[in-house]
Design a protein around this nucleic acid. Structure first.
Lengths: 192, 192
DNA sequence: TGGGAATATTCAAAAAGTTGCATATTCCCA
DNA sequence: TGGGAATATGCAACTTTTTGAATATTCCCA
C-alpha cells in the first residue's frame, strides 16, 4: 500500500496517465520513490476500483489514446489520512554503488572508480535538472516570497531534499575519487 | 542476487552469524542496504550451498548456539567479480517521509511536522554513532595517515557517505520545519 | 521464581516488485 | 517505404520482500 501513497502524491500535481507517472514519476516524486511501469498501471487500476482515482479517456490525434487519472474526493481524503498515519518506517535504501565501494579493497579498484565517476555524472545532471525545476517553481520570486505566497510548498521542500542529496553525492564522490587515486599511487609505489 | 552482494560486503568485516548480520547489518552496510532477518538467513543458506560462504558451528555457554559464516575463497572471488560488474542499476530509494512532505499541503501539517522532527532525531543519533565509528577507524590517526596506512578504505568511504547523508538530513529538516512553521503562522493569520 | 528482553534460527503465507514480452499508434529520418 | 524511437498500455511468470508468527536458550532484574 505504499506505492499507492507515492502515486497519490504524484497526482497532486494534476492528472496524469500511467505512462506519465511511469517515466520520471512526475519528476519530483522520482527522487524518493522508484517504481516500474507495471507496478504503476496495476496500482492505478486497483485505486480506480476503490474509487481513489478517476480515469478520463483522451482521444489523441498524434499519439495513441490514453487514460488520464486524477484524484477523486475520496482520493484527497486518503491523502490527508495518509499524512496522519503514525511512524513512517525507516527509509529503504538500496545503493549498489556503496556496496561496491565497501568491497573495493578486495575488488577491482579501477572498476569501482569508474562506477563512482559515473554516479557523479548522473548526480551532476540531476543537480542541473533540479536547479531548473526550482527556478520554474520560484518563477522569479525569492524563496521567502515563494513560501509566503505559493499554494503548495510540499513539492518545493522535496525538491530541496533531492537537490542537496545530489550535491552531496558530488561532494562525496570527489573525496572518494581522490582517495582511491591516492591508494592506486601508493599501491603502485609499493610494487616498485 | 543483489542482497547477496551486500551480505558479502558485510562479511568482509569478518565472520558473523545471521543474527549479527540481521541487526545492524554489520553497522556500516546498513546505511545503504536494508534487509530483514528472514532475507539474510535464507540468502546465507543459498550462499552456503553454492560454496560462497562456510559456516562454523559455535557452541555457546551463555547464549543459544549459533553458526558463524565467513567468506570462502570462492566468496572472495565472487566479491572481486561483483565489483567489475557493469552498471550498478540506479539507487532504489523509498522514503515515506518525503512522500508525506510532498502531500503536506493537502494533508495534516502538524503530523508531517512531527514526522520530520522524528526523522531529525534519528538522523542526529546516527550522526553520533557514525562519528564514533569514525574515531574507532581512525584510531588516533589523521585522515591522511589513515588512507596512507589502512588495510581497507572501503568501509571508511561508505561511512563518510552515511555521515554526510545524515548531516544533510538534519540541515534539510531544519529548513523544512522552519518553512512549515512559517506556513502555520501564515494560515493562522489568514484565518483571523 | 517468574517474566521480560536479548540472543539465535526457522517456517509459511501474503504482498510487492521485476522481467520479458506483446500490442498498437505515430513520428521522424534516411 | 522501411525501420527505429517514442508514446501508451497490458499480461503472465517469476523472484524478492515483507509480515507474522513459532521455537529454544539464557540473562537480568524485581
Amino acid at each position: 500500500m505504499a506505492l499507492r501513497n507515492a502515486v497519490m502524491a504524484a497526482l497532486l500535481e494534476g492528472e496524469a496517465s500511467g505512462y506519465d507517472l511511469a517515466k520520471g514519476f512526475q519528476s519530483s516524486v522520482a527522487n524518493f520513490w522508484m517504481a516500474t511501469p507495471q507496478q504503476i498501471y496495476r496500482e492505478l487500476e486497483r485505486m480506480e476500483s476503490e474509487g481513489l482515482v478517476a480515469a478520463r479517456f483522451v482521444q489523441q490525434e498524434r499519439r495513441p489514446n490514453k487514460r488520464l487519472f486524477s484524484l477523486t474526493e475520496a482520493g484527497y481524503a486518503a491523502v490527508h489520512a495518509y499524512t496522519t498515519e503514525p511512524p513512517a518506517k525507516p527509509t529503504a535504501i538500496r545503493d549498489e554503488l556503496l556496496v561496491k565501494v565497501q568491497c573495493v579493497d578486495v575488488g577491482d579498484l579501477q572498476a569501482v572508480r569508474a562506477a563512482i565517476a559515473q554516479r557523479m555524472e548522473l548526480a551532476a545532471a540531476k543537480v542541473v535538472r533540479f536547479e531548473r525545476a526550482r527556478e520554474r517553481l520560484l518563477a522569479g520570486r525569492t524563496e521567502d516570497e515563494y513560501f509566503g505566497t505559493a499554494e503548495r510548498i510540499g513539492p518545493y521542500l522535496t525538491l530541496l531534499r533531492g537537490l542537496s542529496l545530489e550535491q552531496d553525492n558530488l561532494r562525496w564522490g570527489e573525496v572518494a575519487l581522490k582517495r582511491l587515486d591516492q591508494r592506486t599511487a601508493a599501491l603502485a609505489a609499493r610494487a616498485e
